[in-house]
């Protein structure tokens, strides 16, 4: 554990809780992509199955349980409790275009051919692109609520901070996992456009709207 990873994890946690609280408080999930949330639920489920097979630390296990519960809680709010507020007309990204290639890639480029390892790899590849339906939705509606922008910023920062963590771990522990590093870089690049808009608009008190 180092400061970059801790900040990354906290940023990730903040993003997930921010979304959950926003939906709960406003009694609405308008502007949130249900498809991205489904993808994140698949990501957490396939990655954290190792809760049953390997133990790293209390910290890791607790975080995994929180991420899983919050993710399924978000799905429950979006597709059940506040379903009438879900803006499915604008959530039109085809997620099979992400689910299938990520699955194929996880069979092609993987550290070891075991069920748990292929599922872990799949979760890494799918996570890298899971935000695309949400970013597509923002581009279709041309705007995002400020709290949604904060959510996206925290979620994007998490992997960017993990990149710093991997650089640090490379020099201090000789840690080098190219699958997660390259996927993490791709994931962060997808947010760059959004980061630019966030810094130039939202941080100056303006609403995020596209030209």
């Amino acid at each position: 554990m180092n400061i970059f990873r801790l900040c990354g994890d906290l940023s990730h946690l903040l993003a997930i809780l921010l979304l959950l609280v926003k939906i709960w408080k406003t009694r609405s999930c308008a502007g949130i992509s249900g498809k991205s949330q489904i993808l994140f639920a698949i990501v957490y489920t396939t990655r954290y199955l190792d809760l049953f097979t390997s133990f790293v630390s209390i910290y890791n296990s607790v975080m995994k349980i929180v991420f899983l519960s919050a993710s399924y809680g978000t799905l429950y709010l979006m597709f059940y409790k506040f379903k009438p507020t879900y803006d499915h007309n604008h959530d039109s990204f085809r997620i099979l275009y992400l689910i299938v290639p990520a699955l194929v890639l996880s069979f092609v480029i993987v550290h070891a051919y075991t069920l748990m390892e292929v599922l872990w790899t799949y979760s890494i590849y799918l996570e890298a692109v899971a935000i695309m339906p949400q970013l597509f939705m923002v581009s279709r509606t041309g705007e995002a609520e400020t709290i949604t922008s904060h959510y996206l910023f925290a979620l994007g920062s998490y992997r960017a901070l993990y990149i710093l963590n991997w650089i640090y771990r490379y020099y201090t522990e000789d840690f080098l996992d190219l699958i997660v590093i390259i996927a993490g870089i791709v994931q962060t690049i997808l947010y760059c456009d959004f980061f630019y808009l966030y810094i130039t608009k939202v941080l100056k008190g303006k609403r995020l709207s596209l030209p």
Binding site: R5, D9, H12, D50, S54, V56, S57, N60, M63, K64, F67, H111, A112, Y113, T114, M116, E117, W120, Y162, N165, D177, V180
Partner: peptide, 10 residues
């Protein structure tokens, strides 16, 4: 046997 890497991150 196949050796799996240990994943210690989230």
């Amino acid at each position: 046997p196949v050796t799996e890497p240990e994943h210690d991150e989230l």
